[in-house]
Design a protein around this nucleic acid. Structure first.
Lengths: 144, 144
DNA sequence: ATAGATGTATCTATCATGGTTACAGGTAAT
DNA sequence: ATTACCTGTAACCATGATAGATACATCTAT
């Protein structure tokens, strides 16, 4: 299993919006060309980013733009926007363990605790990085 | 997406092996009854746990037992044993972004860095918990 | 030899993913 | 207002992972 590439696509899009300032050229087709996918895939992701208030897009008018400064968008914001992992659902548990067994009737509570902690640790790691850092990374790599 | 319940099943099995000391009764059928699944599912998981050196099982002979003390088995050990997430593959990235775009040709390197950090944070959270704690949790919950 | 267990191969239904086509509806420019 | 071009979305498809199930080979203790 793997977390959907919708997340990486979303990051890609947002970075590109930040770098390419000419709003009107940021069409779903242009973005699809950079990501190397279908324009509809881009529009679906864009729709989620719009719903989360990260971008401004208008039906019928070419181009999208960031709704916030780069430094105010964390990777966690993007991750939540594109809904790749549901709340407390990074790990799945077997359902309906046998309540007549001591392990069966108590393990879920314990698993939930540990799984939730692990998921939070991962999400916190995403929370401390902003898109500003990612863009800077990209610019620096390109200058080498 | 969600990480396979093979992981939670594996934890369940190991806890049960620790609690039910009568080795001979720990057959795949008995374990399946507690987990509430098919005995073959149990045997598949058991096969992976055996490969990782966490349990002793012998073909043809009923029952399994832990190969190590509970306190020496971390959740990370189990997670790796059942192979639910490949190395550096918790997050998937879109492949073949456009190398003619500055974002396209540099983002993967940056994503890999961030994704790998997030995955490590999650795995570290699993590493600091041993099965001994989970079993204790189970016993305590049951005594309330 | 037999009974009962593990080890696996194989098949199935189900579901998420990513890509695609098709089209409805919005907007701006002529 | 017509046109050209864009976004928004529904619908469909191929693919791959998952969890369950059947079937059977193989092993071991009695």
């Amino acid at each position: 299993m793997s977390i959907s590439s919708r997340f990486s696509v979303a990051i890609h899009i947002l970075c590109l919006l930040a770098i390419n300032k000419e709003k009107a050229t940021n069409t779903s087709e242009y973005l699809a060309g950079s990501v190397n996918t279908n324009p509809v895939v881009i529009r679906k992701v864009m729709s989620m980013l719009k719903g989360a208030g990260l971008v401004h897009v208008r039906a019928g008018v070419a181009g999208a733009e960031l709704a916030k400064p780069l430094a105010e968008i964390t990777l966690l914001d993007v991750y939540k926007a594109v809904n790749v992992v549901a709340e407390n659902d990074l790990f799945s548990s077997h359902e309906h363990p046998n309540p007549e067994c001591i392990v069966g009737r108590n393990i879920q509570q314990s698993l939930t605790k540990q799984f939730s902690a692990a998921q939070k640790a991962m999400e916190h790691s995403l929370e401390i990085v902003t898109l500003a850092e990612v863009v800077q990374d990209i610019l620096e790599s390109d200058n080498v």
